[in-house]
Every structure is written in C-alpha cells, then in structure tokens.
Amino acid sequence: MSDDPNDGSRPRLKRDFNPVPGLAAVALFAVLALVFLQASFGEAQGFEQGASITASIGYAMFNIDAGAISGAVVSGEGFVVAFVLIAVALDVAIDGAVFLAKSEDEEGGIGAVLTDGGREIREKLRGGDD
C-alpha cells in the first residue's frame, strides 16, 4: 500500500458530513429500537409442515381458492387486484423511461456523446479512425 492519497483503488471513507441530519437519523434509530425492544411478542407460529410456500404464493397472488387444491397450502389473502395495479405501474415506468431517454436527443450534448461509448469525441480529438 502506498501512502499516495490518489492511488485510486483503495476504498476511502467520506469525512465532510453535515452532522445535524446524520444525528437525526441516528436519533430515529434510537427511538425505533427502544420501542421495538420493549414490545412483547409470543412464540413464532411458523409455516405449516409439508406445505409448499412457493405454490402458496402463486395461489395467493391470483386469488385461487385454496380449498380446491389437494395438499397443504399456507393461507393468505388474494392479491389479483394489486397484481393488475402493479402491472399498470410497470407499463407507466417503461413509458417514462422511454420518454426520458428520447427527450432532447437532437441537441447532441455530452450525454449523447458519452452514450455512444465516447466514439464521437475521440474522433473529434484524434481526427481519424483507430
């Protein structure tokens, strides 16, 4: 290990923190831990013996009646409405990502240069192919 502070690969801790918000986060943790450790819980029930948890997740996700299925099933609520809502949200996310990617593309800023792997700026600098 060299003593050069610029040798690059060694992880360094950031030191110039603003202390007040950091203390706020630590205080939040102190309050939460105090409350949680004073709460009383019973013994955990655990899952039913021999039940397939993965299959039960599938039944719960699509509101399939567990009574119609042979074998042990862990009970749960129906989630098919949440499933459709999340599907719509993912569609909106795809549209938003496409919109962000194509907006202001014609300007040719540094982002457009860098997203082609720096090829354009390298050709400008060296004036030839490589």
Binding site: Q45, S56, I57, A60, G76, E77, F79
Partner: peptide, 14 residues
C-alpha cells in the same frame, strides 16, 4: 413467518 401466513411474502414480491 411469525404468523405462518403467506401474505407478507406475496406483498414483498410486489
């Protein structure tokens, strides 16, 4: 796991 119910796992998938 504590309640022996699969609802929490399904919700965390979402």
């Amino acid at each position: 796991f504590y309640w022996g119910n699969v609802t929490g796992q399904t919700f965390s998938l979402f």
